[in-house]
C-alpha cells in the first residue's frame, strides 16, 4: 500500500542519541560528513565507521534499519564502484581481458568510495531515525535564525516544511484513491508509449491539484482561526535545551576527528 511509506522514518526512543539537542545533532552530522571527507586512508575511514556504529548501538535502532537505509542507494554504490574499477588503469594490473583492465588501485579506490558513501548514509539516516521531522525542522529554523537579520524568511520556510511533512501522507493516500476511481472508469495507466502514459496522468493530476488547492485554502483558514499571524511573538512548547550530554558527545566526536587528522598527518 502506498500509505505505508513513511517520510523521515523516525523511530521514537529514549536513548542517549535521541535525547541529544537536535541542533547539536545536525552540527554533529555535518562534522561527521567533514570527517569522512578529510580522512584519506582506510584507517581514517575506519575511525569514522567505528564512530557511527557506536552511535547506532547507543541509539538502540534495530540493525536491520541500517541496512534498509542503504537499499535505495545500492544502485549508486554499484555504479560508482564499477566506474572506479573500470576507469582507473594505473597501478598493478590484477586482471586483464580484452579491453578490460582491472588494477589494484582501481579496486582500492572503489572500496574507499563505497565505504565513504555507506558511512555517510548511515550517519545521516541515524539523524532522521532518532529525530522527529518536526523537531528537525524546528532545529533547522533555530540554527538558521541569525539569517532573519538579513531578511531571510526562516520561520515561513520552516512552517512550509512542517506542512509539507504533515500533508505528504494525506496526499499520497488521496492519489491512491483518485487512481482507483479513474481506473474504475476504465482509465488505462499501464500501457502505451511515453506520450500516451503522460496523457493518461491528466485525469489523476487535475483532481489532485484541485484538491490540494482546496486543502490549502481550508488549512489557511483553520490556521487563521487559531491566531496564526506569522512568526512574530511566537513561542514554542518544546524548548530546545543543550545539556551535559551534548557536550559529552561533542568531545567524543572531537576526539575522533583529532585521531583522523593525526592519521592523515602521519600517513597511517
Amino acid at each position: 500500500m502506498l500509505k505505508d511509506i513513511t517520510i523521515g522514518q523516525f523511530f521514537p526512543g529514549n536513548s542517549f542519541v535521541h535525547k541529544l539537542d537536535p541542533r547539536f545533532k545536525i552540527v554533529f552530522t555535518i562534522i561527521f560528513i567533514v570527517m569522512l571527507f578529510v580522512a584519506d586512508s582506510f584507517a581514517g575511514l575506519g575511525i569514522g565507521i567505528v564512530f557511527v556504529l557506536m552511535a547506532f548501538l547507543i541509539s538502540k535502532i534495530p540493525f536491520a534499519m541500517m541496512l534498509k537505509s542503504l537499499k535505495p542507494i545500492l544502485s549508486i554504490i554499484i555504479f560508482t564502484s564499477v566506474l572506479n574499477i573500470l576507469f582507473i588503469r594505473t597501478g598493478d594490473v590484477v586482471f586483464k581481458w580484452a579491453f578490460l583492465t582491472i588494477t589494484k588501485q582501481g579496486l582500492t579506490t572503489a572500496a574507499f568510495m563505497v565505504i565513504r558513501i555507506v558511512a555517510l548514509i548511515i550517519g545521516t539516516s541515524l539523524l532522521t531515525y532518532t529525530t522527529s521531522p518536526i523537531v528537525l525542522t524546528d532545529a533547522i529554523e533555530r540554527l538558521l535564525s541569525p539569517l532573519k537579520k538579513i531578511k531571510v524568511p526562516v520561520h515561513a520556510l520552516a512552517m512550509m516544511m512542517t506542512i509539507a511533512l504533515r500533508f505528504i501522507p494525506t496526499l499520497v493516500e488521496e492519489t491512491d484513491k483518485i487512481m482507483s476511481a479513474q481506473k474504475a472508469r476504465g482509465a488505462d495507466l499501464e500501457s502505451g508509449n511515453i506520450i500516451q502514459r503522460a496523457k493518461a496522468l491528466v485525469p489523476i493530476l487535475v483532481p489532485l491539484f484541485v484538491s490540494s488547492f482546496r486543502r490549502a485554502e481550508e488549512l489557511a483558514l483553520a490556521m487563521e482561526c487559531r491566531c496564526y499571524h506569522g512568526g512574530d511573538g511566537r513561542t514554542r512548547m518544546k524548548q530546545l535545551k543543550c545539556g551535559y550530554r551534548d557536550f559529552v558527545a561533542l568531545f567524543v566526536l572531537a576526539g575522533f576527528m583529532a585521531v583522523v587528522i593525526v592519521f592523515n598527518v602521519y600517513g597511517i
Partner: peptide, 13 residues
C-alpha cells in the same frame, strides 16, 4: 461493474 467511490466529485477533471 461500475464503481462510484465516496466523494466522487473529487475525480472530475
Amino acid at each position: 461493474v461500475g464503481l462510484v467511490f465516496q466523494y466522487p466529485e473529487y475525480q472530475l477533471f
